[in-house]
């Protein structure tokens, strides 16, 4: 299937300063794509360019094959978005807010509005003014307005910002459901790595307006790539265990860290490795994937620029 969102060599200059440099990536239907970077990295600027709020200096952004610059109306039809905060009309009710945005999109009927109010669990307060809503409720109403016209691409800027853990969990569950059940492409931005890991299939790391890397979590969870696994056999037996593993698996990269073995191995080979270590007479107190490394890589990526 072709990509819903294509960002091609996008640059953004403001007063001679490059805010975004040579940014390219694409988002496929049915995936949740993360946009990770520290504050000020250019996430919001990029999102503004995607929805036509800010002109692109050079390059292009295609949504469902249409250029946001040249065929704005056709491109934006496929987009539902929240940029920055979910700002709704405080003096209108939740329902009136949705009616308002529905009128702007053409074919949206009352049934769809009710359906969405129920989806985001705001059906019982639809006659209440948005002024009285909590941030979490506003965020949910924001998602409802973005979904009204059944877009193919949902763009959410920091959707969990300011939410409590319960609210974050709800948003995460919605997004995953939308992507999996309705084949929606979802782009979310965040400055928190942990959130990206929980929510996204893939995510791009950007720093100072440049793409640093794209992480594919489906691959890292699945087969193929060796991942770091930490195995705790007790501090006394660490050296001996390392010897034994090295003899049996001469090709693997093995390190010692925090009094544990760190072995880079494909996921499907982990059970065999553990069985082997145990049969060699070692007790295993703990064995886990070393998620820390990703965080470290993110921090490295983001601090490298700052220190140089």
């Amino acid at each position: 299937m072709s990509s819903i969102l294509e960002v091609n060599d996008v640059h953004k200059r403001i007063r001679g300063k490059e805010i975004i440099q040579d940014l390219s990536f694409s988002v496929e239907p049915g995936e949740v794509f993360g946009f990770l970077g520290p504050n000020g990295a250019g996430k919001t600027t990029t999102i503004r360019m995607m929805v036509g709020l800010t002109p692109i200096s050079s390059g292009d952004i295609l949504i469902d094959g249409y250029s946001i610059q040249k065929s704005y109306a056709k491109a934006i039809k496929q987009v539902g978005a929240i940029v920055e905060n979910p700002e709704m009309y405080n003096h209108l009710t939740a329902e009136k807010n949705l009616i308002h945005f529905a009128r702007m999109n053409g074919k949206v009927d009352q049934k769809r509005i009710d359906e969405l109010l129920d989806l985001v669990k705001l059906g019982h307060v639809k006659k209440k003014k948005v002024r009285t809503f909590s941030l979490g409720m506003k965020q949910r109403l924001g998602i409802a307005q973005a979904l009204l016209h059944r877009p193919k691409l949902l763009i959410l800027d920091e959707p969990t910002n300011g939410l409590d853990p319960e609210g974050i969990r709800m948003v995460r569950a919605y997004l995953r459901r939308l992507a999996e059940e309705e084949g929606l492409a979802v782009l979310v931005s965040s400055h928190l790595l942990s959130e990206m890991e929980l929510m996204c299939d893939r995510f791009a790391i950007i720093q100072d307006g440049k793409l640093i890397s794209i992480e594919d979590q489906r691959v890292s969870e699945g087969e193929g790539r060796p991942l770091p696994y930490q195995i705790d056999v007790g501090p006394q037996k660490l050296e001996a265990a390392m010897q034994v593993v090295k003899e049996a698996y001469p090709d693997l990269k093995i390190e010692e860290a925090e009094q544990r073995l760190t072995i880079y191995i494909e996921k499907e080979n982990v059970p065999a490795l553990l069985r082997y270590v145990m049969e060699a007479g070692f007790d295993i107190y703990e064995a886990k994937e070393d998620k820390q490394t990703l965080e470290e890589r993110f921090l490295q990526a983001t601090s490298k620029e700052g220190s140089s």
Partner: peptide, 14 residues
């Protein structure tokens, strides 16, 4: 002032 201009402008109407 309220920021709603963004939601207003990311729609098909020019």
């Amino acid at each position: 002032k309220t920021g709603t201009i963004k939601l207003l402008l990311v729609r098909p109407p020019s």
